[in-house]
């Protein structure tokens, strides 16, 4: 093998050197002319261009959209309405009761997303920590179990939604199993509570492996002799966890929580395939609301959808800033130690 590679390298050496020599002079001349920074700018330009066209430009256009009304999809054909769409979104007699709101579906989506985010992130953090603690132990087949927990992360969200729909639907796997065991089957996905619980459960199942991995890395960074010192200090296992493991895990947990928050706010794919937003609107979240109102519904309103997406984007920007602050703080702490 080494021989083949060596021979290949030998054969390629001459043409590569020749090509390099060819490029060398112009490159140097260019660098002399524009300086290193100039060259860097040119190499960065293509990526910035793609970013500008596919991210920045649509973002700006989206903001423009959010201030227009009318049925045309084409921006210049729309009428300027200023902040009317935002007004419509935000006008509620009672903010805690979506029914009193002008745009009740939006507030239902907001409320659903809020409840989802709180429960899903909290539960998932706990599950991730427990999973990481278990995976950190010297159990048999540890590598296998780590792969098993991480596997759902690799699945496409549509696949995840489909798998669980097949399990949870009326004639699905779960009901078949319950029936065999003598229990009465229940139509889980038409039950408002269970459909929501399923949305939380399925999204935890699909993503916990990733966060468990981050927590696991944090666990492994805790020096073993701290645990031995705690043992010598006569510490009970529970206290070891609360007073030693958890505080030292805090930086990692913060990262996990913020990342999970950012992702949870955007929840869509798995749930849309699993429940379609039903029953009724009980699992309709913000992203689906924007999709429906902007594109899919028979009652389209693109300007409204844009406004909703800008509001949602605002929340995400805040969360991202928090994440950056946390990362910076962790880095500083790491440097000090």
């Amino acid at each position: 093998m080494a021989g083949v590679l060596g021979r290949a390298a030998g054969v390629l050496a001459a043409p590569v050197a020749w090509a390099a020599a060819l490029v060398d002079r112009p490159m140097r001349a260019w660098q002399n002319a524009t300086g290193t920074n100039g060259m860097a700018a040119v190499f960065l330009a293509p990526n910035m261009l793609i970013f500008g066209v596919f991210v920045l430009f649509p973002l700006v256009i989206n903001i423009a959209y959010s201030m227009t009304g009318g049925t045309a999809l084409f921006l210049p054909d729309r009428t300027f309405v200023g902040a009317a769409q935002y007004e419509r979104l935000l006008s509620c007699a009672d903010y805690t009761d979506p029914k009193t709101c002008e745009e009740d579906q939006f507030w239902i989506a907001v409320r659903n997303t809020g409840v989802f985010v709180v429960f899903q992130v909290a539960l998932m953090t706990v599950v991730a920590v427990v999973t990481a603690l278990i995976l950190n132990r010297e159990i048999r087949g540890r590598s296998f179990w780590r792969a098993v927990f991480f596997f759902p992360v690799l699945l496409s969200p549509v696949v995840v939604g489909l798998i669980w729909r097949w399990i949870l639907q009326r004639d699905g796997l779960l009901n078949a199993a319950l029936f065999q065991l003598g229990f009465t089957p229940h139509v889980w996905l038409t039950d408002r509570f269970w459909a929501f619980a399923a949305a939380i459960g399925v999204s935890i199942w699909a993503h916990v492996g990733f966060y468990a991995l981050i927590v696991l890395a944090g666990l492994q960074a805790i020096p073993k002799d701290l645990y031995e010192a705690a043992e010598m200090d006569g510490t009970k296992p529970g206290r070891v966890f609360w007073r030693i493991t958890l505080p030292l895990l805090m930086p990692n947990l913060l990262v996990v929580i913020v990342l999970a928050l950012i992702r949870a706010v955007q929840i869509f794919d798995e749930v849309f395939v699993l429940t379609g937003g039903g029953p009724g609107t009980s699992t309709m979240f913000l992203t689906q609301y924007i999709y429906e109102v902007g594109f899919a519904s028979l009652l389209k309103n693109p300007g409204l959808a844009s406004a909703a997406s800008i509001l949602m984007g605002g929340v995400l920007v805040v969360l991202t800033l928090v994440q950056l602050a946390v990362a910076r703080r962790n880095e500083a702490k790491g440097k000090r130690q």
Binding site: V187, G278, E292
Partner: peptide
């Protein structure tokens, strides 16, 4: 399920 397991006008 027919009417309830989707939202909006799907």
């Amino acid at each position: 399920e027919v009417w309830v397991s989707a939202a909006g006008s799907t």
